[in-house]
């Protein structure tokens, strides 16, 4: 049974029908990616998973339990951490404060302290910037902080929204290498990306989302090779 199962999810923003019967499933230990153009509903899907928007129909099952209708702070405690679009770091707080806030849902002081050390060994640049305001970090560093902060919740499933957004190609490669490393350590990841090429290159499975509907679902390698995807998202 899959770790995350989304069935026939419908979401409305007022009169706008943003998601129309979206079904996805994420197996434990996998990287699953959701690709598609602007406004396809990728971010909306992630927001529904973390409870930031309510679904009008369908069901979301995580680790065998329905989480539809749960509040965001409840969902974090169930084991889903969301690194939001645009990174959403707390700009005027220090890097360390950001990390500590990532562990807000936890109570084990010792565990939090050791996880902060782990973040620092994974992202040495964050250690250097520990007492700096997060807003003074470069885009790539902020993205690393956003990922590190999400991991501080010790999730079973990590939701990443556009980690490549606004970053130089070299930095994007570095970020994706880190995502793969985190996955290799056993973290299940649902990755939303406009950069379909990069996303499909590290994912096990991929979904193509178009105007609120799943258009294709396949093994990531096969998707990357298919003519339709190449034309629409990979520039020929």
């Amino acid at each position: 049974m899959a770790l995350l199962e989304v069935k026939d999810l419908d979401i409305h923003y007022g009169a706008i029908h943003a998601l129309k019967g979206v079904s996805i499933s994420v197996e434990e230990g996998q990287i699953v990616t959701l690709v598609g153009s602007n406004g396809a509903g990728k971010t909306t899907t992630l927001r529904a998973l973390s409870g930031l928007v309510g679904a009008s129909r369908g069901d979301i099952t995580f680790a065998g339990k329905s989480i539809r209708g749960k509040k965001p702070h409840e969902i974090v405690r169930v084991g889903i951490a969301h690194s939001p679009e645009g990174r959403g770091i707390f700009a005027s707080l220090t890097v360390r404060d950001n990390l500590e806030l990532g562990a807000y849902s936890r109570n084990d002081k010792a565990g939090i302290a050791s996880d902060i050390e782990r973040s620092f060994s994974r992202f040495p640049i964050l250690k250097e910037r520990e007492k700096q305001a997060a807003g003074t970090l470069s885009g790539g560093e902020q993205q690393m902080l956003a990922v590190a902060r999400a991991l501080m919740a010790r999730p079973k499933l990590l939701l990443l929204d556009e980690p490549s957004l606004g970053l130089a190609p070299q930095i994007v490669h570095a970020i994706f290498r880190i995502i793969r490393e985190i996955n290799a350590e056993g973290m299940t990841i649902l990755l939303v990306e406009q950069n379909a090429h990069m996303a499909l290159s590290i994912a096990n499975h991929g979904y193509v989302l178009e105007t609120g509907q799943i258009k294709m679902s396949d093994d990531a390698k096969k998707l990357a090779a298919s003519d339709e995807v190449r034309k629409a998202y990979l520039g020929g």
Binding site: L52, H73, P84, F90, D97
Partner: peptide, 23 residues
């Protein structure tokens, strides 16, 4: 305190605050 940081997170970025589990 942790609560103080949670107040600050609401000021800094409400969506991100929700996403890390702050009510």
């Amino acid at each position: 305190s942790t609560h103080g940081r949670a107040f600050l997170s609401v000021r800094e970025n409400e969506i991100a605050a929700e996403a890390i589990g702050v009510n």
